[in-house]
Computed example of a mutant assay.
Amino acid sequence: MIRHIVLFKFKDGITWETPAAQEAERVCRQVGAEVPELREWTVGRNVSSRPIAYDLAVIGLVDDEDALERYLVDPFHQKAIAIWREISDWVIADIEE
């Protein structure tokens, strides 16, 4: 199993009040239902106000590296990436369990 973790940080001028951020969150929450490789999908806004904190986290679980690759190229996932690319930067970690 591989745990896929992504942390998103808004670009300057973007907040949760920005319509594009609200749309990005909405689409992000749908990824778990739309991408069959995902066994689990968690999405959550950060509640910390620390300057180093990111704004949103997603955590997914897939069976193996092949499933991770299929998830990464899935059309719905690519749609979500395109939306987030406009408003944020992010970091990822893929952890083998």
Rank of each mutant, 00 (worst) to 15 (best):
S48L: 11
R85L: 10
V43G: 10
E96S: 11
A93K: 05
G44P: 04
A33M: 03
Q22M: 06
Y54S: 09
V35Q: 05
I92A: 13
E65C: 01
G32E: 08
K9Y: 04
D63V: 03
F8K: 05
G44A: 12
E97A: 12
G13H: 00
H4L: 10
L7V: 10
F8H: 03
A33H: 04
D74Y: 09
S88G: 13
H77K: 11
W41M: 14
P75C: 14
V43C: 13
P19M: 14
P75K: 14
V27Y: 07
L7T: 07
E37Q: 15
L68Q: 14
W84I: 01
S88M: 14
R85A: 15
P36Q: 10
W84R: 02
R70K: 09
N46L: 08
L68V: 02
A20W: 00
K79T: 14
A82L: 10
V6K: 07
D66E: 08
R3Q: 14
D89S: 05
I87C: 11
E17N: 15
D89N: 04
I5G: 00
K9N: 01
I87E: 10
G13L: 00
A82R: 14
V6C: 07
A21V: 08
C28I: 09
V62T: 13
C28K: 03
S88A: 15
K79G: 07
V6R: 10
I95T: 10
L7M: 12
I83R: 09
Y71V: 08
L68R: 15
G32W: 08
T42E: 13
W41R: 13
R50D: 07
F76R: 11
G13D: 00
E69S: 11
R50V: 04
C28R: 05
F10Q: 05
L38I: 15
L7G: 00
G60F: 01
V43Y: 03
R50W: 05
E69P: 00
H77V: 09
L38S: 12
W90I: 01
D12H: 08
R29D: 02
A93E: 03
T15K: 02
P36I: 11
T18E: 06
D66L: 08
H4F: 10
Y71K: 06
D63M: 03
V47R: 11
E17H: 13
Q30R: 15
I52P: 01
